[in-house]
């Protein structure tokens, strides 16, 4: 494992995902004087407290000005500095969309964006602060690597990878308070390679972010209740996406469900569907996520339940998709 920081189960329990990000970036900044943190009045909300303690002179706060934040980051990067830019995903993807597109991606600068409070993780703040179209926006931009970590350990791995590799990275994390998926950082994280969380041959659930743990729990339940072997893939990297893992799932399980705290238009589900369709290998397919609707206000877990991207929603979807058959007849009506 690269990097000089390791987090224990205790720190994972005690710290939110974004706090772990804050610690990870503080560790990097202590080692490398050419790394800075840039934020737009969200240093505390995006958990840069540790950085403020160790290198306050390298925290650049531009005030409430996300467009400026990306422009400044691009200028810093062009001059040889690696900026870690943090802000709420709703604003890093939408408010400063042109700057992300032009200053960061088009110029292909070495800037790392940590987009916090993504999906509906800041549920009570309402749709102005939900980010359910950010994956669709960012994924379409050339040059950028897009990662959606499932928990704090994975966030630390993603931050390490972003630091180790040149180019724009967009790491989409939650508000924090995520439940633990992994036991430690050593599970073989690799950018662009899905992680199999649960083996299975009946159906594959491909998830990202906070939906991965829900998929894992759904798989456990379905094995006990229905005797189903549900493969669960943590597709932490949305771009470049792991085509090999997707096509393996198509041929070995012939049923795929995608789950994301994002619109079903343009995000993980769309990315997976593109791979399946372009391979010319059809399979039963269902996308779970926000169904072209703005989400209600509420606690994150309540919104996930209502939208059907929690364990219950996944269980129901798996049972529905398992009804699909693949008879070699001309009747398409009984297929999924």
């Amino acid at each position: 494992m690269a990097g000089g920081f390791v987090y224990t189960a205790t720190s994972q329990t005690d710290l939110s995902t974004s706090e772990i990000y804050g610690k990870a970036i503080a560790d990097i900044m202590q080692r490398d004087p050419k790394v800075v943190a840039v934020t737009a009045d969200l240093a505390k909300s995006t958990k840069l407290g540790d950085v403020l303690k160790v290198c306050p002179e390298r925290v650049i706060n531009v005030g409430i000005a996300e467009q400026d934040m990306f422009g400044v980051a691009a200028g810093l990067a062009r001059a040889g500095i690696t900026p870690f830019v943090s802000g709420f995903s709703a604003f890093t993807s939408m408010r400063a969309c042109d700057q992300l597109h032009t200053d960061i991606c088009y110029q292909n600068v070495n800037a790392k964006i940590i987009a916090t409070h993504s999906g509906t993780s800041f549920g009570q703040a309402g749709s102005t602060h939900h980010a359910i179209v950010d994956l669709a926006i960012v994924r379409a931009m050339p040059n950028i690597t897009l990662i959606v970590p499932a928990d704090g350990y994975e966030t630390a791995n993603a931050v390490n990878a972003a630091y180790d590799n040149f180019g724009p990275y967009y790491i989409r994390i939650n508000r924090g308070f995520d439940r633990v998926l992994y036991e430690n950082m050593d599970y073989g994280f690799e950018v662009g390679k899905a992680v199999e969380i649960n083996p299975g041959s009946d159906i594959t659930v491909i998830a990202c972010g906070s939906c991965v743990l829900q998929a894992k729990e759904a798989a456990k339940f379905l094995e006990n209740a229905d005797g189903l072997k549900v493969r669960v893939l943590n597709m932490h990297t949305i771009k470049p996406i792991d085509k090999e893992a997707i096509l393996k799932a198509v041929t070995e399980t012939r049923r795929i469900i995608t789950v994301e705290d994002h619109s079903v238009i343009g995000g993980l589900g769309s990315a997976v569907a593109e791979v399946v369709v372009e391979a010319g290998k059809g399979c039963a397919f269902k996308k779970l996520g926000h169904q072209d609707k703005f989400a209600p206000i509420g606690l994150h877990e309540d919104i996930m339940a209502e939208v059907g991207i929690d364990a219950n929603g996944i269980i129901n979807a798996v049972r529905e998709v398992m009804k699909a058959d693949f008879e070699e007849d001309d009747n398409w009506d009984d297929e999924f």
Partner: peptide
């Protein structure tokens, strides 16, 4: 803004 980053 890019200039500001460059100057910083």
């Amino acid at each position: 803004s890019i200039a500001a980053g460059t100057a910083l």
